[in-house]
Amino acid sequence: MQGSVRKKGSKWYYSFEVSEVDGKRKRIERSGGNTKKEALEALNDAMYKYNNGYVEPKKLTFDEYITDWLENFIKENRKINTYERYKELYKNNIKPHLGNILLKDLKAIHIENALQSEKKKKLKNDKNLSNSTLQAIYGVINSSLNRAVRLQVINDNMCKFVERPKRDKFTANTLTIEEFNLLLNKLDKDSYGDYMFHLALLTVLELGLRRGELAGLEWDDIDFENNVIKIKNNLIYTNNNVLLGTPKTEESKRSIYISNDLLERLKKHKIVQSTNKLKYGNLYEENMFNDEKKNFIFTWESGKYVHPNYFTLKFSRLIKDLNINKKVRFHDIRHTNATLLLQQGIDFKVIQSRLGHSDISTTLNIYSHVSTDMQKSATEKLSSLITYY
């Protein structure tokens, strides 16, 4: 393929021929700049792009591109809750600012202005959008444009010229053992719902599970002989549906050693569940997910699975009833688990493995706070090695 440049008026133009599908030749001519040198550089760049499959986006809007990206790439290759989250962020926080801009005309200033506008947005509680949400918005734009570059729809990702919003520093909220015991004592174990939730609290405190991992536990996941439980399911609520998927990351698929005490409670629970099956007979519900029957550990008396949101709502009501003046969620029992392990001197790497974090920096960042007692212990151990004169 050869090209040429020529001057027309005050501008320099470049042109080159390409083959059409039917074998015919077509000459492409574009403005190359104000000098012959600029035109030659533009010519070389254009021919390189053409030879490597580059497609000029022409009148493709950002909305048209990202809608296709969401439906045909994210939906097909990511977890359904990731797709729903991205779709929500695009609809509410990105499309109003960038949707109508031609993809080829998208500049860093457009992305910067979109983030600034969202940063100033007031929520129902009269608070601004959090930095974590702003970072998520940036992440959706950045990921979509990275894909566009790989597909050679655009030549560069404008996000690299925009400062990434800083995530809010996260401090894990936790319960003390005394507060946790208050929760357990508040439950009436003669009521099946309270009995089941009591067992759920103990399971999460010992194993540090996410609520979807807890709700998705099956009896086949427990190796009673070797005291090991496998975490391989994630029961999630998204887009008004309860779906069974896999845990958050590959590292979240894990095996955790389980204590004899919890194992015995689960064995007794299996007997309770079997009794309920006999009691309900043909009315005992089967849980079908992904065209398979699932034998969940945590079910209602009727056999129906426990909705993941139930754990959150039940926990919130308990906290309120007990007047525990802390902003804690059901998920914070997982943080309590990690903090207790840390206070017992357990290595961060072990905690990372138990929690299923893909990167130890996540574990380190979340649990970087160290209690006064731990600081005191560290100081006393160090001072015992030093001779003071």
Rank of each mutant, 00 (worst) to 15 (best):
residue 1 M to Q: 08
residue 1 M to K: 12
residue 5 V to L: 01
residue 6 R to E: 03
residue 8 K to S: 11
residue 10 S to D: 06
residue 12 W to I: 00
residue 14 Y to H: 03
residue 15 S to T: 00
residue 15 S to L: 09
residue 19 S to H: 10
residue 22 D to S: 06
residue 24 K to V: 00
residue 26 K to E: 09
residue 29 E to A: 13
residue 30 R to Q: 10
residue 32 G to L: 01
residue 35 T to A: 01
residue 35 T to D: 08
residue 35 T to S: 05
residue 36 K to Q: 15
residue 44 N to A: 05
residue 48 Y to F: 11
residue 50 Y to R: 08
residue 53 G to L: 15
residue 56 E to G: 02
residue 56 E to F: 14
residue 57 P to S: 11
residue 63 D to M: 03
residue 65 Y to A: 04
residue 65 Y to M: 11
residue 66 I to Q: 05
residue 69 W to R: 02
residue 71 E to D: 15
residue 73 F to V: 11
residue 77 N to M: 07
residue 79 K to Q: 14
residue 81 N to T: 11
residue 83 Y to A: 01
residue 86 Y to E: 06
residue 91 K to C: 05
residue 92 N to Y: 09
residue 93 N to L: 12
residue 95 K to S: 14
residue 97 H to C: 08
residue 99 G to E: 10
residue 101 I to V: 14
residue 102 L to V: 02
residue 102 L to D: 12
residue 104 K to M: 13
residue 107 K to N: 04
residue 110 H to G: 01
residue 110 H to M: 01
residue 111 I to D: 03
residue 116 Q to T: 10
residue 118 E to A: 03
residue 118 E to K: 07
residue 125 N to M: 08
residue 127 K to E: 15
residue 129 L to G: 03
residue 130 S to K: 08
residue 131 N to S: 08
residue 133 T to Y: 14
residue 141 I to M: 11
residue 145 L to N: 02
residue 147 R to L: 07
residue 156 D to E: 03
residue 157 N to Y: 12
residue 158 M to F: 13
residue 162 V to T: 09
residue 167 R to M: 09
residue 168 D to K: 10
residue 175 L to Q: 07
residue 177 I to P: 09
residue 180 F to Q: 10
residue 182 L to Q: 15
residue 188 D to F: 12
residue 192 Y to N: 05
residue 193 G to C: 00
residue 193 G to M: 04
residue 194 D to P: 08
residue 200 A to S: 14
residue 209 L to Y: 13
residue 209 L to T: 09
residue 217 L to Q: 04
residue 220 D to M: 07
residue 228 V to P: 00
residue 238 T to L: 01
residue 240 N to F: 01
residue 241 N to S: 13
residue 244 L to E: 09
residue 244 L to M: 14
residue 255 S to N: 12
residue 264 E to Q: 12
residue 264 E to V: 06
residue 267 K to G: 02
residue 268 K to R: 12
residue 270 K to I: 12
residue 271 I to D: 15
residue 276 N to Y: 13
residue 276 N to A: 12
residue 277 K to P: 03
residue 283 L to R: 07
residue 288 M to R: 06
residue 288 M to S: 01
residue 291 D to N: 08
residue 294 K to Y: 02
residue 299 T to Y: 03
residue 299 T to A: 11
residue 300 W to K: 11
residue 300 W to Q: 06
residue 305 Y to A: 05
residue 305 Y to V: 00
residue 309 N to S: 14
residue 312 T to D: 03
residue 316 S to E: 15
residue 316 S to F: 04
residue 320 K to G: 07
residue 322 L to I: 08
residue 323 N to M: 06
residue 323 N to Q: 12
residue 328 V to T: 09
residue 329 R to D: 00
residue 330 F to H: 02
residue 331 H to E: 05
residue 333 I to A: 01
residue 335 H to E: 07
residue 338 A to L: 03
residue 340 L to W: 04
residue 348 F to P: 15
residue 357 H to Y: 09
residue 357 H to K: 10
residue 360 I to Q: 08
residue 362 T to C: 03
residue 365 N to M: 02
residue 371 S to P: 08
residue 372 T to G: 01
residue 372 T to Y: 09
residue 380 E to R: 14
